[in-house]
Design a protein around this nucleic acid. Structure first.
Length: 602
RNA sequence: GCUGAUGUAGCUCAGGGGUAGAGUACUCCCUUGGUAAGGGAGAGGUCGUGGGUUCAAAUCCCAUCAUCAGCUCCA
């Protein structure tokens, strides 16, 4: 949480839901319990978060997981005693005196900040019995209203989110209005562990990591099939929407990055490579690309462009490298090498709205295909960050244009103040997965700076040179990240069209192998990815292994099937199978396999 | 990068100052079996890496690398 957010947490008028109110009170009860167990405890802040609450505390002891039980016990005592939450108003001076006397330096600091930066003249406190905390509320009337809670985990967190400050111990907890709701939440967390894409990636042999290439995935054959299938899907989409794919270099003279502004903004996160070999290139410094956009301007400017060429949509699956801090990488969701379904649309001011409309269309069609709930998409307008290039007028125009589009879209959207890219504002789109977790995938960015910096122009119908606008788009976002998120969304059970192995043929005995091999030929003709399990093993084992590999279809053949020209078909996850004629099976497979192309036929 | 935890066989993990363990996967043999584990035998590890302490280190200490959780960051 940024410092600004921390302060908002303290100063802004609150409108917490009933559940949030209870969680917030629960955080207070936790602080109360901690102060009983460790009277020297110094408290930071204790807000509610997405799934619960936390409190940051400075303690003389290092907490261990068993301490959570101890704190819970003490909390239960407090809740059992049914203490009331009593609100009091204090002048700043009163409050400062009070918290100084209580030896609560962080609270004193908060009060001073409220006074000095926000001009507060009074603050409020809440007391439950002997424990008093600085807080604007609201709270439940009494502690006994807290129904079902659990302390979840321990973590370190810097005071006010700055690594220059001391690190406090953060205790995370959650609370629900019923025990059932709490249990359901805990079950979701368990399920999330089972679906962890890092675990499934290993189990399904999709990808792996190696210490010599930290945070950089090795895609094994099966993972590569899925990856390439995603790319193919995006290419099919490009054919429909009129995008041209290009391939651009991997390494550039840093002059390019100085022109684009990446050098000054992201130098520390770029990989630099050896200097040039030629005498006259000795002083040239080269860097691996962290982004595709500057390269696309050279393709735009390769010709004298006319307004008739616009919109020019250049797609680039270029591999990007970013030297991320070691602590921020995680599985496929944050890596040092990745590629995006990246494209840059060069267009006129008048074309911005229809182009972004088309991109939104791609987003909706894609997320529908991947079985994300489209009516649960969350849109955000991310505006100018502190670290940025370009004049305020340019930013005003770009933000205004995106705001217009969002207003006309007729969907609610949030504002992410300061969340834009350094070269332009964006529309970020978050999806909810099957476990109701939110992920940011798609992004649409409006850029008036790049064409300026690289002096892109086109000739208008007035025969005068004009500056085009660039729209950056990614629908799936980073393919690595998308794959990670989607693996967890589908629990590793890929839809038929995307599965690395779509079908496993299982002859019951040796005698049925030729029959299965015949079917194999038909599948190959159809382009179906299949395997045959002709091992000398029993059906129980073969079934188990096919199910554990999450293969969408099992086709089993024994004497019965051979005599009927059929297979016993079992879908992944189904309890039993049904016997279908070979032609029926092939027709069904063809339909499923073509599913991703269906939305792009007129 | 910061704080903390973890690192033992391909995988999942146990153990622990005195010659390295299980399950599973793998190889071979037996089994011709109808929808979630048939039986047997065998092979497989400098206990992440580098130092130190010790008669002796996989075990203790230090450093380092990687991973995980959280913080900060995410063009």
């Amino acid at each position: 949480m940024s410092e600004q957010n921390v302060l908002n947490e303290i100063t802004e008028p609150t409108s917490l839901s009933e559940l949030e109110t209870m969680r917030h009170s629960c955080a207070h009860v936790m602080a109360h319990a901690i102060s009983r167990l460790w009277p020297e405890a110094k408290f930071g802040i204790g807000p509610t978060v997405e799934d619960g609450f936390y409190y940051d505390v400075d303690l003389p002891v290092k907490l261990v997981p068993e301490d959570l039980k101890k704190i819970e016990k003490e909390m239960n005592r407090i809740i059992g005693s049914g203490q009331e939450f009593v609100r009091r108003e204090h002048t700043i001076e009163e409050a400062l005196g009070k918290f100084k006397a209580m030896n609560q330096p962080f609270k004193v600091e908060i009060i001073e900040t409220l006074r000095d930066q926000f001009g507060a003249t009074s603050v409020s406190t809440y007391s439950e019995g002997e424990f008093t905390d600085l807080c604007r509320g609201p709270h439940v009337e009494r502690a006994s209203k807290i129904k079902a809670f659990k302390l979840m985990s321990l973590a370190g967190a810097y005071w006010r989110g700055s690594e220059k400050n001391p690190m406090l111990q953060r205790i995370y907890g959650t609370a629900f209005s019923t025990q059932e709701a709490l249990d359901e939440h805990l079950n979701l967390l368990e399920e999330a562990k089972r679906r962890d894409h890092r675990k499934l990636g290993k189990e399904l042999d999709l990808f792996a990591f190696h210490p010599e290439a930290p945070a950089s995935p090795f895609f094994h054959p099966k993972g590569t099939i899925v990856y390439n299938r995603l790319v193919q899907y995006v290419r099919d989409m490009y054919a429909y929407y009129g995008y041209d794919e290009v391939i651009t270099p991997q390494i550039f003279d840093t002059v390019l990055w100085k022109t684009s502004g990446h050098y000054e903004n992201y130098k520390d996160d770029m990989f630099f490579v050896a200097k040039g070999k030629d005498a006259d290139a000795q002083d040239r410094e080269f860097a691996v690309k962290p982004m595709n956009c500057p390269a696309s301007t050279y393709i735009f400017s390769a010709h004298k462009r006319s307004y008739r060429d616009l919109p020019l949509r250049l797609a680039d699956f270029g591999r990007l490298h970013r030297n991320e801090l070691s602590g921020v990488t995680a599985g496929l969701t944050r890596v040092r090498t990745f590629c995006q379904d990246d494209a840059h649309v060069y267009c006129t001011m008048d074309q911005i709205e229809s182009e972004i409309g088309k991109i939104m269309d791609m987003v909706v069609k894609s997320y529908t295909l991947f079985d994300f709930k489209v009516d649960e998409l969350e849109l955000f307008l991310s505006t100018r960050p502190e670290k940025r290039i370009g004049s305020d007028e340019v930013w005003d125009r770009a933000e205004g244009a995106l705001k217009n589009i969002l207003d006309n879209l007729g969907r609610p959207y949030g504002l992410d103040e300061g969340g834009g890219a350094f070269y332009g504002p964006k529309i970020d789109i978050k999806v909810k997965d099957a476990l109701r977790r939110k992920w940011q995938l798609a992004t649409v960015q409006l850029d008036f700076n790049l064409p300026e910096r690289f002096d892109c122009s086109y000739v208008g119908s007035d025969n005068i040179a004009h500056r085009p606008v660039v729209i950056h788009k990614a629908v799936l976002g980073s393919l690595e990240r998308f794959l990670g998120v989607f693996i967890e969304h589908c629990a590793g059970a890929f839809p038929f069209w995307l599965a690395p192995v779509q079908c496993r043929l299982i002859p019951i005995t040796e005698a049925h192998i030729p029959f299965c091999e015949e079917m194999g030929k038909r599948l190959k003709e159809l382009g179906i990815r299949f395997e045959m399990d002709s091992r000398n093993e029993k059906m129980g084992l073969k079934t188990r292994e096919a199910q554990m590999a999450k293969i969408p279809l099992m086709l089993v053949a024994g004497d019965r099937e051979m005599s009927e020209g059929a297979f016993a078909v079992r879908n992944y996850g189904a309890k039993d199978s049904q016997t279908l004629k070979i032609d029926e099976i092939l027709a069904q497979m063809k339909e499923w396999n073509d599913k991703p192309r269906a939305p792009f036929r007129d």
